[in-house]
Amino acid sequence: MSAHTHNDHGHAHADAGHDHGGGLQMGHHHVSSAAMFFNVLAILLVLTIVTVAVSRFDFGGANMLIAMGIASVKASLVIAIFMHMKWDTAINKIVFLSSFLFLSLLFIFTLADQATRRVDHEMHTTRTPVDKQWVHPSTLEKH
């Protein structure tokens, strides 16, 4: 995405350099070219087709990974280009991206608890389906 241009803005505060993230920079000068926006849209639409097409095949456990991978690429494009994050100040980048970091904490611990609870049950407690009548565990163990 290095091909972006920013020459078509009639901006009062136009400055020379675009060393992004500088604290005293305006940071909002960047006007992306219409062509780039259109290219990004095209890529997004292609990726939508890809994700639909891929979902017609079953890759087992990888289904979720593939779909989330494509979605993440799409999301990154939207964030970086449409939302101008690529040219935004460092602090704004940190703020927005840290929300994903903290969200991942919620995901990791909650899902890890769920995943390892099963291991727990197999390890050292008696696994007794609740829907069934209570059966004495000693009889369960015989099966």
């Binding site: 390890m123 050292h124 407690t125 008696t126 004495h136 565990p137 000693s138």
Partner: peptide, 10 residues
């Protein structure tokens, strides 16, 4: 972790 002896007296 439930020991064997305890799980026989459930």
């Amino acid at each position: 972790v439930v020991p064997e002896a305890a799980s026989r007296n459930t």
